[in-house]
Design a protein around this nucleic acid. Structure first.
Lengths: 230, 230
DNA sequence: AAAACTTAAAATATCGATATTTTTATAATT
DNA sequence: AATTATAAAAATATCGATATTTTAAGTTTT
């Protein structure tokens, strides 16, 4: 989570806890897109006062997960097939640049971190034992790997943006309720990306990264278009 | 302002009014970087309760103008020479992409809007009669022109990001207290950019845009490095 | 003298109650 | 039947008071 301050839910302000809980609820799709976020309701469900709830919602605005309409309250921000296309496109643009810059920096320590992140990702299984629910640990290692790719681009601003957009993407994945990319061999794609990066083959690396995203994207897009958006 | 909802300060919630007022105060440098934003103090100065103030500050977090530290309140986010360099670099990366995409769209109506925006900018003087204070109308037309350049890039996400980064840049300009770019002929630079765009000369247009930003940037950087940051 | 407690003051975070505004439902008018 | 007006209900926004946490200052201990 972009605004993360502490690891667990201990010892932080109610506002923070509330922020985290609503954040997860939205990302995981427990709170459906477009749904009205009534203060009174949330307040009761989460067992706090109105102030922490309002403030948490205001903060969630930064992550583009919540829309605030003046004097008309908050709602879970909408998603749409078009919105997804735009998100994907934008991510490709930005991550391409970030990757190019990262690779331009040619940092040995970075390469090692990358190998490590890749190794850790590879060790995890995408799905849990039941073969139905996605493995949250894999999710986090996957993000870690991709963010490491961008980590030495030289702009913390850009990194933060990519982080946010990544999370928005997860939201779409969960919304499509499809256990993302079942057929393709995602692992092989990660291998290839890493290989190109370690070989300092910038164009190839970028090409592979983009194609990695685009493939998943097209697959998701298909599923999304079949859904009714509110 | 990215979060702008209504034109003037009428008829909007106190939270909104408070948001706008603090926004301007930070951008204009009335509230210095790093300064602690004490709720009680602001509350008194702005003549409202604590809730609107807190909520406004939470919202300002999105714009990266305010930092929130859990249980330790809010402060005006820091600026630094390095921060500026990073901001400038990031803006160049993102605006380059946006401009390329915009030009790729080859939209006649867009070209007309561009000509208009350019004309309106040209009509304004950069400084007020006193030749000392920057003309706010020029500022707004300048932003308008630059944002129009990016407006048909096909990603409202990217546009919004550039908008935010633009405003952060203004903050630096005001902080440097220097009547930005005094010697150079900025007007000519705008002319050249427009010309290249209308001629569908993508690379030249991008080159000129980047150089336009970089020149201003280097100038500002010099002034910034002489300032003491808190 | 530096580090570790202790305590008072300051500031943040939160609550519960109230004022405002928007929404919804119903009735009146063209 | 569609628009406009009206009133009640619901929800948002805001306030003032209070609980909690952090900061600062002074005091003791090593």
């Amino acid at each position: 989570m972009p605004n993360e301050t502490t690891a667990s839910t201990e010892n932080t302000s109610l506002t923070n806890q509330t922020y985290q809980r609503i954040y997860t609820m939205i990302i995981q799709g427990d709170l459906k897109p477009g749904v009205k976020l009534k203060i009174e309701e949330l307040r009761k469900n989460l067992g706090t006062g109105a102030s922490p709830v309002r403030e948490a919602l205001s903060l969630l605005t930064s992550d583009h997960l919540v829309d605030r309409i003046d004097q008309r309250g908050f709602r879970v921000s909408h998603i749409s097939a078009d919105g997804f296309t735009e998100l994907l496109k934008t991510r490709c643009w930005l991550e391409e640049r970030a990757l190019r810059e990262s690779m331009g920096a040619k940092d040995v320590h970075w390469e090692e971190r990358l190998v490590l992140a890749h190794h850790r990702l590879k060790r995890e299984h995408r799905m849990l034992e039941d073969k139905k629910t996605p493995n949250p640990v894999w999710e986090s290692k996957h993000k870690e790997f991709h963010m490491t790719l961008l980590s030495v681009c030289g702009s913390s601003i850009l990194i933060k943006i990519c982080d946010q957009l990544y999370d928005q993407n997860i939201r779409y994945r969960n919304a499509a309720k499809t256990m993302a990319y079942p057929t393709r061999d995602v692992t092989a794609e990660h291998d290839t990306i890493l290989e190109h990066v370690l070989n300092h083959n910038v164009d190839k690396a970028v090409e592979e990264l983009i194609s990695h995203y685009t493939k998943t994207g097209e697959f998701l897009s298909m599923h999304l278009k079949q859904l009714v958006f509110s």
